[in-house]
Design a protein around this nucleic acid. Structure first.
Lengths: 342, 342
DNA sequence: ATATCATGCTAAAAGGATTTATTACAGAAA
DNA sequence: TTTCTGTAATAAATCCTTTTAGCATGATAT
């Protein structure tokens, strides 16, 4: 790590002014009528000595930190960490860095983080909003802070967002389960949450149930429920209702469901889960899932945000990513087979 | 988000100088002999209006960005993302932020990231070094850039590091497998890598094998091997050698191993993996693991780094975290039982 | 001969904090 | 009265860029 070299060092070495160097480095040579010869001389020299501007000084002067704040529900959930990984990549390619945080669906924590990032002068936010964040986000919005929501949105708020086609995903998954004549009782496991993604998934489930004129069985778990308690409740729900099949609203709920099945030695009902997980492919039987194209989501998110920062978004971006139902063993193997092996 | 308020606004409102306010805010009131009355007045006012210094200006002036760079092998691996989560938390509590990146064990990418972070003026690094980074790290070291390695270290480099007791972990896991008289042929799956953690795990395995006067069966996989190819190789390794048991050097190698078993319909050998994974607990049978206390690792890492930044490390910190062997079904269920159910 | 214009470059301000060097003053000592 | 000391506060420099406003110069138009 050679000693940091300054723009003034360059100016001095070349016997010209700092202003000129700065103009050239910022691509304003033509606009500012700097001669081509000098421009080349400067660029060559800069390259030779490997000068990199001091980001902090640059940020202070321009008011752009070139840092984006990413606040997700839980970075250790593979769905979010995969999105984060892609976002990170694209951001870097555009000269931005990411600072991230998990807010564990806790509104207070989310507010703190938003404030923290604001104090750090992030240039924009990507957020999976928990409930109770309307006011804070509305505030950001009013102040024209670049903001894109994802996974869920706030209906009363006119913000950009990128979400999955949750209704369709849940509808198709439920229809798929109901298409098997074995499956009369198809339950749905979700969270006590009015977040849009949960609302839409529930509606998709209900629509499919109604279309088949079947009875709905719905179980909601508290968002911050302890694992043991959740497992017990899931067992009771599946067992007491003698469910044939279950749709799980998130991957971790499905994992809790699997734990319940294992712990209580139950027969595994037919099942589908939202959002894939390494576990699901290897589970015996493999678990069917409604998957989101994380890389498409990341792409839309970061590009919408960068466009907003550059003032290039003509209109509000309400982006809905299609989902895909991946059928695996858990929703097709016959109950009899399952009962034999378990 | 109220309009940002400056230190000069405060000075003006209170009819005093910016200098005085700054001294007070930086806890130098006594040292600079600012009267207690004024100090209190300023602090109260600052609190009332909710002033927060502009980080960028502060950083530019002090040369401290209050940002730490975290470069790990793969942030989507739960082992690393859990460590990251804890590090993040402690860093925040100490007024630091983290920017992170995955380097996928690619030395070139790692070098770029280190340079990128350097240009961003991070105050320190936490790195899981890939091979081929000696020179770059040595350079950081020479320039007194605060640096802590983890998961593995560079033997020729006098840096702080935090690693697992890999030798002991592998030794105990292998001994555990060999303790079962059924298990004659115990293999070891690792990576083509001379990183210290891999070297030490191999030595631990060898020691246990030698102690039991057994034959060693070692399979190394290319670091960037495609999944399909790795699975095929693992199948061949386990099948051709008719192994009774296998120790896997990482969680993702073990997952590839499980995929091989599933894909080729093999009998599951007894097995133990390094580093836990959600999958392992739910797998049937559950997979035994050598676990690392991620929170202890995170603690040691961040505190060593912060101490280094503050110049409080009297001596080189070479921290070895004890490991724990968690025995689950995969290494105790009898082969016969396994053969029946699979 | 003077005003106008385009060209090519630069001095200095600005961004918002920290820190060094200095001032102003009251009271004690000479 | 003058000098010194200690206290309480501040002016100005500094960190490193970007950006505004402006200065020379020579050519063209009037």
């Amino acid at each position: 790590m050679r000693k940091r070299i300054l723009i003034s060092d360059i100016a001095k070495s070349l016997g010209i002014s700092v202003t000129t160097v700065s103009f050239i480095l910022n691509g304003k040579a033509k606009e500012k009528r700097i001669s081509e010869g000098l421009t080349k001389r400067v660029l060559d020299y800069v390259k030779k000595v490997g000068y990199k501007p001091n980001q902090l000084a640059q940020s202070l002067r321009t008011g752009q930190s070139k840092i984006l704040g990413l606040i997700v529900e839980d970075i250790s959930n593979p769905f979010f960490s995969n999105v984060a990984k892609d976002i990170e990549k694209i951001a870097y390619d555009n000269g931005y860095h990411i600072i991230y945080c998990s807010m564990d669906n806790d509104a207070t924590k989310a507010k703190e983080l938003i404030q923290l990032f604001y104090d750090r002068q992030v240039d924009g936010y990507i957020i999976t909003p928990p409930e109770g964040l309307e006011d804070t986000l509305s505030n950001l919005n009013k102040n024209n802070v670049p903001l894109v929501l994802f996974d869920r949105y706030i209906p009363t708020l006119e913000t950009h967002y990128v979400v999955l086609d949750n209704f369709k995903g849940a509808f198709e998954a439920t229809s798929h389960l109901l298409a098997n004549p074995q499956n009369k009782k198809v339950g749905y496991v979700s969270l006590y949450s009015n977040q849009t993604q949960m609302r839409d998934r529930l509606e998709g489930y209900m629509k499919a149930i109604d279309d088949h004129q079947q009875q709905a069985y719905i179980k909601k778990i508290k968002i911050d429920e302890e694992e043991g308690e959740a497992i017990e409740q899931l067992h009771a729900f599946m067992h007491d209702n003698r469910l044939d099949a279950v749709l799980f609203a998130t991957n971790y709920l499905a994992i809790d469901g699997l734990k319940a099945v294992k712990q209580y030695g139950m027969n595994l009902p037919h099942m589908v889960a939202f959002d894939d997980h390494t576990l699901f492919k290897l589970h015996e039987p493999a678990i069917s899932v409604v998957t989101q194209d994380t890389s498409a989501i990341a792409n839309e998110l970061i590009h919408t945000l960068l466009n907003e920062i550059k003032g290039k978004n003509k209109e509000l971006q309400k982006i809905v990513i299609p989902c895909e139902l991946q059928v695996r063993g858990s929703s097709v193997i016959s109950q009899e087979t399952l009962e034999q092996t378990s």
